[in-house]
Design a protein around this nucleic acid. Structure first.
Lengths: 269, 269
DNA sequence: CAACTCTTTCCCGTTATTCGCAACCGAGGT
DNA sequence: ACCTCGGTTGCGAATAACGGGAAAGAGTTG
């Protein structure tokens, strides 16, 4: 099945440029299930004449968005995609897209909301909204790094990376102890990860900051773990942590939708 | 100055689609120096009518390649760029583009050539060509991880990341000792990095595998460190390591050119 | 609160670009 | 040598894009 994201509707709305739109549609057609395309394949897939497909592909290749293997004459994603990916990271668009979601989550729960992405064996906070209690710290939350082995923010993500990769990552890694509740044993940690993965959420109390409770869920992108969304507050406020889970899940799905362009519709997974 | 990469020539060659090409040109216009654009700015920059710029931007936004802040009405890179970036990583295009360069380097020097990219406090070999001595190992080189603190492959890269980031990365990190020559002291390592950065290359002997000498240079992408290119061989073969430096440098520049689309022209930096 | 400016968006006749058919090519296979 | 399959090229017809201008918002100033 083709990606149901930004490429869901293949018709170009009035007032937009059909030819440009087709090129973008082709670009989005490069998916995990289709890493390379040939001219005829594109023509058939989109119902175009071969000559159209040929010209679209050639144009994309001309600007480096695709590269063509001269032998097989098939097209793959090109280095311009690398540039775009790097630009995305520093564009600040992510915050722009998710800040409203985090804000709604924070006002609804009263907690601090955090969206975090993996970054060299840590989780980096890339967006955050303070809870009603207000910020307790004097540094901005965005940009902060959390260790991979402590706290629900990290656990919600790392629990969902393939076990082999995780084992390799955590092997021979010293686990710093931050509080008395920090888990520093590899095997115990792995058991934690299993549990988190089965349940679909992570809940930790004082593993990184004592007195702070955190509830986290993974954020997936096209089936792959991408980051985690979490809410944190004082230990006392989280006496019934699972009450927050539905809201948190819904917010995570909204984030996923914003990033994949999936049409806002009935919830599914 | 505009990016002199894939967007160097703003005219569309015959046989290609002008409208699609314009959209791609706009996408490439989102640069480190220009994170967001308005309709009028695009029109002026490219010498188009405002209505054209408006339609191009709207089309790009429609497919998620751009997002628009409803308040400022300015456009930024959108989540489709995130998707493209991830696709690039798994497309295998990188190997396709650099393998010929590595092959030429290996036949010229007789060494094993390796292109490596940083990956969670390691360097990951993403492309490699064995030297004339042939492979000594029984596992594929591509995919292998090198620790950040040992060997020229890692040092050539990490020497060029900003000092603050590097210090943060290396702090509280235990340095495994692989051979008697592995540098495990943070301060000594930092001195190494300084020297490597000043000289523009790293040369190590037996820091990771004893008996193996490695010469590495950084690979930059639009002024930022991206990875490293290195040649490795037996310690005896590297009695005059600097003889290889010009070839290695030239190969690194070729890699950079393939990835940025800079026109093959006179060397500059 | 109204007038002004700046920018974006919409509209529509004209024109240049794209379409799509068909022929051509080149590589592999029979 | 022939056939088949996928890719490329040429060209007239049709259509999608262009671009001038008008209208609509948003923000600012008097």
């Amino acid at each position: 099945m083709a990606s149901g994201g930004f490429a869901a509707d293949r018709t170009t709305p009035a007032g937009l440029l059909q030819t440009a739109d087709r090129a973008l549609l082709v670009l989005l057609g490069f998916d995990r299930s289709r890493l390379d395309w040939g001219v005829t394949e594109v023509a058939e897939e989109f119902g175009w004449d071969k000559s159209i497909a040929q010209r679209v592909l050639a144009t994309l290749a001309h600007r480096g968005f695709l590269v063509t293997d001269p032998n097989t004459r098939r097209y793959r994603i090109g280095p311009a995609a690398l540039h775009l990916g790097r630009m995305w990271e520093r564009s600040g668009s992510l915050r722009m897209l998710v800040d409203p979601i985090l804000a709604e989550l924070s006002t609804a729960t009263g907690d601090t909301s955090v969206l975090a992405l993996p970054d060299s064996f840590h989780m980096r906070c890339v967006a955050a909204v303070d809870g009603e209690a207000g910020p307790i710290r004097y540094y901005p939350l965005v940009g902060e790094l959390y260790p991979a082995h402590a706290g629900a923010t990290s656990k919600a993500y790392y629990a969902n990376v393939p076990e082999d990769d995780r084992r390799r990552l955590f092997r021979d890694r010293p686990m710093a102890r931050f509080t008395s509740r920090t888990v520093t044993d590899v095997d115990e940690l792995e058991r934690d990860f299993r549990r988190v993965r089965e349940r679909g959420y992570a809940f930790t109390v004082g593993e990184y900051d004592s007195g702070v409770a955190t509830l986290g869920v993974p954020v997936f992108l096209r089936g792959e773990p991408y980051g985690s969304l979490s809410v944190a507050g004082s230990e006392q406020a989280f006496d019934r942590p699972l009450d927050r889970l539905p809201r948190l899940r819904r917010a995570a799905e909204q984030v996923e939708r914003r990033l994949t362009g999936a049409a806002p519709g009935p919830t599914h997974r």
